[in-house]
Design a protein around this nucleic acid. Structure first.
Lengths: 203, 203
DNA sequence: TTAACAAGGATTGTTGACAATCTACAATCA
DNA sequence: TGATTGTAGATTGTCAACAATCCTTGTTAA
């Protein structure tokens, strides 16, 4: 097949991804208001599709909706609640790893390496939105390959609320290295290393 | 204060609750299509608010959306995935119980008893939508009182996907009794009994 | 008989306009 | 001076109309 077989992504999906990444990377900081009309102008649509996106992101946990007032960027979950969410997220990711173990193909590793390449470039450019997006995309790829849309949706809802922080790492490159280690261990079929790398990454 | 202080529920919220209950009780069976125009007629609104509701329920996990085609009722999660969701749900509910333990007031027990009365009436009438709604409402009350909107949203997303089944119980009255036992144990501050009743209920 | 194509109807997606609600600020009153 | 009220502008919520897409059925060709 010589023609591209990339899935066509809907306008809604693209806008949602873009805004989610901006929220996850703090480009849109907690409590920042989002205005339908401005976003419609920014993305070249009418307000209708923007409303859909804002509603989706609200349900995902990225935004807080107030009737007749609008939506604002939500505050990340903290303290014990965050600990519980991290624990839940880990359980889902470990389960996904179990499910896909030994079943990934060359195409899968090609796709994950591609995500890592994007992350590498984002780290070079210190582009936090793209870093956050790649981070999310890699983990999500594994969940997605495990095949349960339900677990994937719940995982997303948790991941969005946790808001990964990168302050524990010294350099941008460390963000990338940590994720490379996960993929390397999976590809080498070293489950102990994969689980360790994965759980060390979700904190 | 002699005037009612009941919170006003938005039209969207009321429609979402009604449809969710119908889905949870199988009145709207898996794979059944939902049509915007028909629902708009049924609820006396335009299609816009209905689209909002359908999008919300889709994100919650009750509906499956297909671009340009519409939404259908989702299929409950089964097998190992369901086991994991039940485990996650239990962890969230146990955490909520910890958080509220010893802090509930007379007003809370009045509210929960009121939900149980509604469940009792629903059982008499064998009204599955109302039973499912009461079941959800009681558990959700506890989560809500624990004070984390994030955990509440994730809990809802899990609960909707699990779809409680009542076939393990002999009579409609058993459904109610099982929930009475939970509230009784909480009110008596008997934590062991509360945890046992709660976990036995979520299967 | 089966597969491919065309057409009509059903339904969703988008748009712009109007109605409803909220917020911020100024003016007035006690 | 602080509290209350009124007003204007910003923004969301809803509506109806039109555009786009899909599904179903019927027809035709191999």
């Amino acid at each position: 097949m010589s023609l591209s077989s990339q899935p066509v992504r809907s306008v809604r999906e693209q806008i949602a991804d873009q805004l989610r990444n901006e929220i996850l990377s703090d480009q849109l900081p907690p409590n920042a208001p989002l205005r339908e009309a401005k976003l419609a102008e920014r993305f070249g649509t009418s307000r209708g599709p923007i409303r859909d996106v804002l509603l989706q992101l609200t349900q995902e946990g990225a935004l807080i909706y107030k009737p007749n007032v609008g939506v604002r960027v939500g505050t990340p979950t903290v303290n014990e609640d965050r600990e519980l969410l991290i624990s839940l997220r880990r359980q889902i990711e470990v389960r996904a790893l179990d499910t896909i173990w030994g079943h990934l193909e060359d195409e899968d590793f090609r796709a994950m390496r591609e995500i890592l390449d994007g992350m590498d470039r984002a780290c070079e450019k210190k582009d936090m939105a793209a870093i956050a997006g790649s981070d999310m995309a890699l983990h999500r790829y594994l969940i997605h390959r495990a095949g349960s849309a339900d677990l994937e949706a719940i995982w997303l809802s948790i991941a969005v609320r946790i808001r990964m922080t990168y302050s524990r790492l010294k350099t941008f490159k460390d963000i990338w290295s940590e994720h490379v280690a996960i993929v390397d261990a999976i590809q080498a079929l070293d489950k102990t290393a994969a689980l360790e790398a994965l759980e060390a990454n979700i904190v």
